[in-house]
Write a protein that binds this DNA or RNA. Structure first.
Lengths: 339, 339
DNA sequence: TTGAAAGCGCTAACAG
DNA sequence: CTGTTAGCGCTTTCAA
């Protein structure tokens, strides 16, 4: 294994100079630098991250904590983050909770991360006060993606507004009985999006002068299967809603499936709208409120890198825009004027 | 930052004993060990992976090289691998190529991995000879998931047989014009599955005494959109096939979409079968040949860990079973006797 | 612009 | 069962 010493010996210089040359630090003559680089390459020198980390206190590694890697949304955020990290020479350490509460504790509690990473990205989870305290103690940049945590650096969309946008679209089409399929507003993994989207739903209803009927709010567990089950109950009743707003595309897809099984025509008998613009949304012709998923990962990674490289940083709250994408699962309700 | 020295001072022992006690090595009295553990906990001691790595030469980190994290298949494999790695105290370093050939080169060429990880998992890619040589030179356990690379440790399914199974199902239903939607058998990222599945398709055709018609073989790029496009051409022709075998569920889903758009009834006018048992397969009622995705990740991780912990290891080729899952996109062709 | 030297925090012989 | 002693391979003052 050739090390920095071998390179130093070869160019007849100190390891200090070689180290500086290799890392692009100033104070090295151009000639020396190019000789060092060339020699390092020729000798097949590969630096040891452990040694560099030990000596410098920097691991050039960022931890990404993900509730479930298998969900498209999180995978896409990870992909975005990975791109910019890799570009800047950082490695990405993946911590997948797989929806498991105990895994979550392990990650936050035993300070697994303490001497391991330079920064942390937390996806969608709203850390508890205790967890926030631990993150704080890390003394490293932390950015939270997809959750609203005041006082912390976050990258997200305005969930409440996204929900309002969806409901306004339905109300604008003439729907007056609009149901909501969402997820627990508090629970195992603590996300902030479910509550915000529910709030958006309710406020848009009020804004449109529509009554609030709690029986039209169902839990779809933010999954296809859950959305499907929720729709079952909603579509089974006499006074069936004419439109369903699902707080995620996956749940909306579940709704579509149930509608199909029940012979409820979409969009003739039922309009369906989601949030996300999931990769499968187009296949289902699903109308949705698109959010820039990949971009959230990129911005979050950029944010921690800036913090890492700058002197002092102020936790910034970045809110990315959403956009209504009208496809073919929404239409005016049957019996409406039509127009 | 409290280090091992602080713990040693506190228990009035050498750092060597503390290190042994903390790592569960033999040769430490029970009493000492518990005192050390307790003290370490009380002092909030967290070991430094960099220091341990430098001293021991082990990073307790495994690299996972993924063509695209956003594809469900790969994400699921990663999830499986992460589970067992985490369980055994290993970290997972993610290298996402995002389908980018240059990213691939970077990962394999500059020996990014050399002093960084203890083992490597490569998903689905068939490394080139050159890349294999580099991997070999790492001198670390490497397992390849989802590709057939003779002489290397692999975990995969029998792709050829899976394809045959799918085609036999169609032929058994009475189909005689069966089309294939697959992917390039050689190309940017070099997978072995496409060629194997195509071979399985052809051999099953021969086995059933059906003619081989190259115009019934289309490229679906292993994506929904590609499958959709491929189906367009296939379903547009006069002598339209009565069944389509897609080499992945995502392509099959694309086929279903095109069929719906073209008003081709499934399964009355067209049977469709895929491979994978993708999470969305059930929603589409897609008949498919299921493969144990998550399990492949687990087994692969176990394999490298065994290699890491045992003395010498023989690269093993694990082939996991597949299983036909009949749903509602396949049926006897129209005009057949019916049963 | 370069070099000498002192660690970074732990592990691993080797002794005892 | 425990301690002593060298490092692991870099980075980083401080001097020159």
């Amino acid at each position: 294994m050739t090390g920095i010493k071998d390179v130093a010996r070869e160019v007849e210089m100190s390891t200090a100079t070689v180290s500086r040359a290799l890392r692009g630090l100033p104070g090295v003559s151009d000639e020396t630098r190019s000789r060092v680089m060339e020699t390092a390459r020729r000798l097949g020198y590969v630096p040891s991250p452990s040694a560099a980390g030990l000596a410098s206190g920097q691991t050039r590694t960022v931890a990404v904590i993900v509730p479930w890697v298998t969900r498209w949304f999180f995978a896409a955020v990870v992909q975005g983050a990975e791109e910019v990290l890799r570009e800047r020479g950082y490695d990405l350490l993946l911590y997948n909770l797989a929806g498991d509460e105990s895994a979550r504790h392990r990650v936050f509690e035993t300070s697994l991360l303490t001497k391991r990473v330079d920064a942390v990205l937390v996806l969608s989870l709203k850390p508890s006060l205790d967890e926030l305290a631990r993150l704080q103690k890390l003394g490293r940049p932390v950015t939270i993606v997809g959750a609203d945590v005041p006082g912390w650096a976050t990258v997200r969309i305005d969930d409440e507004q996204a929900a309002r946008c969806a409901v306004r679209h339905l109300a604008g089409l003439g729907h007056r009985r609009i149901a909501y399929v969402g997820g627990a507003t508090e629970g195992v993994l603590d996300f902030t999006a479910p509550a915000a989207r529910l709030a958006g739903f309710r406020s848009a209803l009020a804004e449109a002068g529509l009554p609030h009927d709690p029986t039209l709010e169902a839990d779809g567990e933010f999954s296809v299967a859950g959305g499907s089950r929720a729709a079952q109950a909603l579509l089974d009743r006499e006074d069936r809603p004419t439109a369903i707003f699902a707080a995620s595309d996956e749940m909306a897809i579940g709704v579509l499936r149930t509608a199909r099984e029940l012979g409820v025509g979409v969009p003739e008998d039922l309009s369906v709208i989601g949030i996300d613009d999931h990769e499968m949304a187009e296949i289902f012709d699903l109308t949705t409120v698109a959010q820039p998923v990949h971009e959230q990962g990129r911005v979050a990674a950029q944010q921690v890198l800036t913090a890492l490289e700058g002197e002092h940083w102020v936790p910034e709250q970045v809110v990315l825009p959403t956009r209504l994408v009208v496809r073919r699962t929404t239409a005016p309700p049957a019996g409406s004027a039509g127009r």
